[in-house]
């Protein structure tokens, strides 16, 4: 792809999210989401092979219908209440429709089936954009709306942590595992969005850091399934010693950064008098933990019985910059002591 066109597309990606961030009018929020989708499509389909085009088709259909439903709810809201403002208290019906449309765009269960398939068709760089930057605009809208009533969001959150954990269990494809992991993590964010939006912001920040580190590691190893991870220790041994920690951070185990949002979210849920919800969420996190641990096991904790000459792949010099990966992996592992500072940063 020509660098000029790539620059235009990347700028449009940034522009769409920025428009959605700064809008107070539903039509403008919709315009931002549409610009985002339209800029993403050429990036997805740039390698003209069937899998990429199929992923782009599925992404287009889902995002276009989600955005149309969002705008429909905005119009209904305007007809019923006479105003377009996002922040103002709105009619409960449009707000419920908007919540569902945004969860379709984000890939929350039970509307998440498109996410693994779209991830599976794309290369790891595009996946990185899709898993981080493309989640920001819908999540920003989700933060701004007044929740209709708490049971819808709690249902979506619980289904997402459960479905994200369950779907990844028997998966050997890393991109699908990461898609399910994205669904599960977004479920945590949605659970707490009505009680403490700043915690949702914290959770998405931590998620972006940890998942970027994971995707950049996979990209460095050019690994798309578990078998390719099994010989990656021969390529970059030091990185392979760090990667299990990044994965366990994504799973939310205590000394790592990923524990921070889960800890605070469980605390907030208990404070709101929802101990049963908090317990179920914590238990569904075990399902996700299983597949992260399986990746860890295949990557580092065991050595497969290959003969020694076939194990090391060619050591071709990689063109990828390693500095972002180093910073992100370090942040994904060791930022837990900064919890008070992070809370002060995102306090709304």
């Amino acid at each position: 792809m020509s660098p000029y066109i790539l620059a235009i597309l990347l700028f449009s990606l940034g522009l769409g999210t920025t428009i959605t961030f700064s809008s107070t009018h539903w039509l403008l929020a919709w315009v931002g989401l549409e610009i985002n989708t339209l800029a993403m499509l050429p990036l997805m389909a740039q390698n003209h092979h069937p899998r990429a085009v199929e992923a782009a088709t599925k992404y287009f259909l889902i995002q276009a219908s989600g955005a149309a439903v969002l705008l429909f709810a905005g119009v209904i809201n305007a007809w019923l209440t006479g105003q377009w403002d996002i922040h103002q208290a709105a009619h409960p019906l449009p707000i419920a429709i908007i919540t569902l449309a945004l969860s379709l765009k984000l890939g929350l269960a039970p509307l998440h089936s498109w996410l693994p398939e779209v991830f599976q068709g794309l290369n790891l760089t595009t996946n990185l954009i899709l898993a981080t930057w493309q989640k920001l605009a819908p999540l920003a809208l989700m933060l701004q709306i007044q929740p209709p009533h708490s049971s819808l969001l709690i249902f979506l959150g619980l289904m997402s942590t459960l479905g994200g954990g369950w779907g990844g269990l028997n998966q050997t494809q890393l991109r699908k595992i990461l898609a399910y992991s994205s669904t599960a993590q977004l479920g945590w964010m949605i659970l707490v969005v009505q009680f403490s939006p700043s915690l949702t912001t914290l959770a998405i920040l931590v998620y972006v850091v940890t998942t970027s580190a994971t995707f950049l590691t996979l990209k460095l190893n050019k690994a798309t399934n578990i078998n390719m991870l099994a010989i990656s220790w021969a390529k970059a041994p030091a990185l392979m010693a760090l990667t299990p920690l990044v994965l366990l951070s994504l799973a939310g185990l205590p000394p790592m950064t990923g524990f921070m949002p889960k800890w605070l979210i469980l605390q907030e849920l208990s404070k709101q008098g929802l101990p049963a919800t908090a317990t179920i969420t914590a238990l569904t996190a075990l399902l996700s933990l299983y597949y992260y641990l399986r990746l860890t096991y295949a990557m580092t904790l065991t050595m497969f019985p290959n003969n020694i000459t076939s194990t090391p792949p060619w050591r071709l010099p990689s063109a990828q910059l390693t500095l972002p990966l180093a910073i992100l992996a370090l942040a994904a592992i060791s930022l837990l002591p900064l919890t008070p500072a992070a809370m002060a940063l995102v306090a709304l």
């Binding site: 339209l38 499509l41 389909a45 003209h48 092979h49 069937p50 899998r51 085009v53 199929e54 992923a55 782009a56 088709t57 599925k58 287009f60 276009a64 398939e117 779209v118 599976q120 068709g121 494809q173």
Partner: peptide, 26 residues
């Protein structure tokens, strides 16, 4: 953009039937 995707799908899959979009299951 939708029509462009339609053309791209017709070129890669040979048809525009949604049943044929089944490559990504594995």
């Amino acid at each position: 953009a939708g029509l462009a995707i339609l053309v791209a799908t017709a070129r890669t899959h040979g048809t525009d039937r949604l049943q044929s979009l089944n490559l990504l299951q594995w």
